[in-house]
Nucleic acid binder design. Sequence first.
DNA 1: GCCAACGTTGGC
DNA 2: GCCAACGTTGGC
Length: 141
Amino acid sequence: MNYWLVKSEPDAYSWDRFVREGRAIWDGVRNYQARNNLNAMRKDDQVLFYHSVTGMAVVGLALVDREAYPDPTDPPAANGKPTPWVVVELIPEIAFARPVTLAQIKAEPLLGNISLIRQSRLSVMPVKPDEFELILAMGLQ
DNA sequence: GCCAACGTTGGC
DNA sequence: GCCAACGTTGGC
């Protein structure tokens, strides 16, 4: 079991819409490190859903329902080379009773090394098991 | 609105 | 291969 965090600006794609639609095709990732993380996701891995920019909080928990496959929003160019970009499919699992804010995360010494802080621009990142358990406990309390 | 971080592009 | 210029992300 692996743990991850994905970011979305709520103005572009919100947790509420994710819940309403019941599934998300996580497309549009165009960063190689984030792409590598998508490729490493396995079915039923747990994924923290973070609202960036106007939310700045982890708002819920999702599950990987389908592992990586080629991103249909980036079709092969005329040269016939397949796209290097991939998507995964996520389904919502639990909405946090109390969204865990970036400020809370920064204030928690046990989360001092979390990628969310150390690599602030990465949009798909691994989360350590202890970091995951702590954020989940904070969100569900 | 500004800026730090950082990835990409293109000239050399 | 180096690096300046530039674009994007995302927090403040």
